[in-house]
């Protein structure tokens, strides 16, 4: 049973991790949900004691109520956070008109290039004493044309 539960946790975690590596925001979030499911399952298994529900009148053996309380808290927290992520994903979508992470990465690179251009001095010309400070200027990459979507 221990092995089975561990395997269950592992499969959920792995599947979640796999989805988080996809380039689609929705898949990524679903992956996160799977991972939090894995965590919750693990917390529940941490109280692995078979028995009746911990409700009075008690049976001979009850399950661990503490892990249940912990699981409940964890479930709610991960639900709240996931809902937040979803609405953030929505805003990301609205501002980039895409749910593709590659699109976001591209935007980030363009931003980085733009940062580069803001009146930077040439780091290569650092403190050259009487010699000539040739210094090969970094060529700032032109922002790639955004390829048409769809």
């Amino acid at each position: 049973m221990i092995l089975a539960l561990s395997l269950g946790v592992a499969v959920l975690f792995g599947a979640g991790a796999y989805l988080m590596l996809k380039h689609d925001l929705i898949r990524l979030i679903i992956g996160m949900v799977l991972i939090s499911n894995a965590a919750n399952l693990f917390i529940m298994s941490a109280g692995l004691t078979n028995g009746a529900a911990p409700i009075y009148p008690l049976g001979d053996e009850t399950t661990d109520p503490l892990v249940q309380a912990m699981t409940l808290t964890a479930i709610v927290i991960s639900f709240a956070v996931t809902a937040l992520v979803l609405s953030l994903a929505y805003r990301v979508y609205v501002s980039h008109l895409s749910v593709d992470i590659r699109e976001l990465s591209r935007a980030e690179e363009m931003q980085a290039d733009r940062d580069d251009e803001v009146g930077q001095p040439d780091p290569e010309k650092l403190g050259a004493p009487y010699t000539d400070a040739e210094g090969d200027r970094r060529t700032v990459a032109q922002p790639p044309n955004k390829e048409a979507q769809r």
Binding site: S95, H96, Q111
Partner: peptide
């Protein structure tokens, strides 16, 4: 409610992108 506002989203994206251009500077 947000669904109702989606109609104008194209326009908003254009605006948002312009804003990002500014933000870069």
């Amino acid at each position: 409610r947000a669904e109702g506002r989606m109609r104008t989203s194209e326009e908003r994206v254009a605006r948002a992108r312009a804003a990002e251009g500014e933000a870069g500077n």
